[in-house]
């Protein structure tokens, strides 16, 4: 079980959440419909092997969206916060 630290509810098993996906994708509000930014936003992914910023919806809890930094190779959770929060890599991870 992945344990995600929901800012409201506290640490919860991931079965309470719905995975939304890559949290680095910023909706290009206002960009023309022809702007390639839209394609990038909807379809392209960095898909890193390692730390990954992602969104989880606490659908069986407070129904808030939680931003999580998680290592996709080890499943280690390195930080969590609200969607607008900046979540930095722990120092130990940066050095790895």
């Amino acid at each position: 079980m992945l344990y995600i630290d929901c800012p409201y509810c506290g640490s919860r098993g991931h079965e309470e959440f719905t995975y939304i996906g890559d949290a680095t994708k910023k909706r290009p509000d206002g960009a023309e419909t022809s702007d390639p930014a839209w394609f990038d936003y909807v379809y392209l992914r960095d898909n890193p092997r390692g730390p990954h910023l992602e969104l989880w919806h606490h659908s069986l809890g407070c129904r808030e969206v939680v931003k999580v930094l998680r290592n996709t190779l080890t499943h280690e959770i390195l930080g969590a916060g609200r969607p607008g929060d900046k979540i930095a890599l722990p120092d130990a991870e940066t050095e790895r």
Binding site: T18, I20, H57, V65
Partner: peptide
């Protein structure tokens, strides 16, 4: 419902 919540919380807070 989830679509609306994600839009409001993530994209249009």
């Amino acid at each position: 419902m989830q679509h609306l919540e994600v839009l409001l919380q993530v994209h249009w807070p």
